[in-house]
Amino acid sequence: MTTRVLDLTRATKCDPAGGRRLPPPLLPAWLAALLLPAVVLAGLEAAVRAGAVPANLMPPPSEVARTIVDLAGHGLAGHATASSLRVLLGFLGGAGAGLLLGAAVALHRGARGMLDPSLQALRSIPSLAWVPLLLLWFGIDELPKLVLIGIGAFFPVYTGVTSGFAGVDRKLVEVGLLYRLPPPALVGRVLLPAALPAILTGLRNGLSLAWMFMVAAELIAASRGLGYLLSDGRETSRADIVLAAIVLLALLGKLSDMAMLALERRLLAWRDTHPDTGARA
């Protein structure tokens, strides 16, 4: 009888818990991730070569690749480094403020009533609306760029922290109170672990917006950076430079998101999630 049950389990490909597994992927994960970009690039290359798409408005991918190689010998590394440092510093400042204020609002009723309505109103202001004010306050040096990037990173992190703490199961808090945990221990041992998935999601979203706000900042006033390359390509009618900058922004953004995702997996290794579902790099 036991042998028949085991054979039936193998035949239906069920896991020990009784849930049916998803079918194995047809392609390795890295190959599947490259399949769609490769098809799009090949189709675009063919369309431009055939004359279906104007080459002056949409250069073929091969020309964009040659432009990136050419820019690599003319200071491209400096532009990428300048943009990456701005994103890093702005994100650290904005995310740090979002973590502190989000925790204060989530854990203190008085702070929630005083701060949350104003912050929710400020959250709806578009990024470009801050630019004239920041230029008036701080000039055209680095500080307004960093502040603008920090603003972009702040609100997703703040929202992730507040929603994460608000979504903690009340039963978990009651168990902590039952064991008479003091407030610091209750936060560290019950509330924070339960809210950590939402907090890390907010950090990932904040990092993504930091890259977007960096481009807005560099388009206004900058002499270095990928946003400056975008502006320079527009002013010189070089669509290949514009597309090269966009490709580099996408690559840098993806690499930073992969780093954040690796941190998320490390910090949330205790979660019992299905191996065939969930976020992937």
Rank of each mutant, 00 (worst) to 15 (best):
Leu44Met: 13
Ala47Gln: 07
Ser84Lys: 00
Leu203Cys: 10
Gly75Ile: 08
Arg66Val: 09
Trp211Pro: 03
Thr12Val: 15
Leu226Asn: 06
Pro25Lys: 12
Ala52Gly: 04
Ser124Asn: 11
Pro60Val: 05
Ile220His: 04
Leu200Gln: 06
Leu119Glu: 08
Leu251Val: 15
Val40Thr: 13
Ala11Lys: 08
Thr236His: 11
Leu26Ser: 12
Gly150Met: 03
Gly51Asp: 08
Lys254Gln: 12
Leu92Gly: 12
Leu267Tyr: 07
Arg238Gln: 12
Ala121Tyr: 07
Arg204Cys: 11
Ser84Glu: 02
Leu122Met: 14
Thr9Trp: 06
Leu191Tyr: 05
Leu261Gln: 13
Arg112Cys: 10
Val175Gln: 12
Gly160Val: 06
Gly90Phe: 01
Val53Gly: 03
Arg271Glu: 11
Gly75Asn: 11
Leu100Ala: 15
Gly94Met: 04
Arg10Glu: 15
Leu119Val: 10
Ile149Cys: 03
Pro23Arg: 10
Ala195Met: 10
Arg234Trp: 08
Ser231Ala: 14
Ala216Glu: 07
Ala106Ser: 14
Ala259Arg: 02
Arg189Met: 09
Leu22His: 09
Leu251Tyr: 00
Ser256Asp: 07
Pro275Ala: 10
Ala195His: 04
Leu22Glu: 14
Ala46Lys: 00
Ala111Trp: 11
Arg4Tyr: 05
Tyr228Cys: 05
Leu41Met: 12
Gly96Thr: 12
Gly160Lys: 01
Cys14Tyr: 00
Leu89Trp: 12
Ala11Gln: 13
Thr273Trp: 00
Gly150Lys: 01
Ala244Thr: 08
Arg49Phe: 04
Ala111Lys: 04
Ile125Lys: 04
Asp272Gln: 14
Lys145Gly: 08
Leu230Glu: 04
Pro59Ile: 08
Ala222Glu: 06
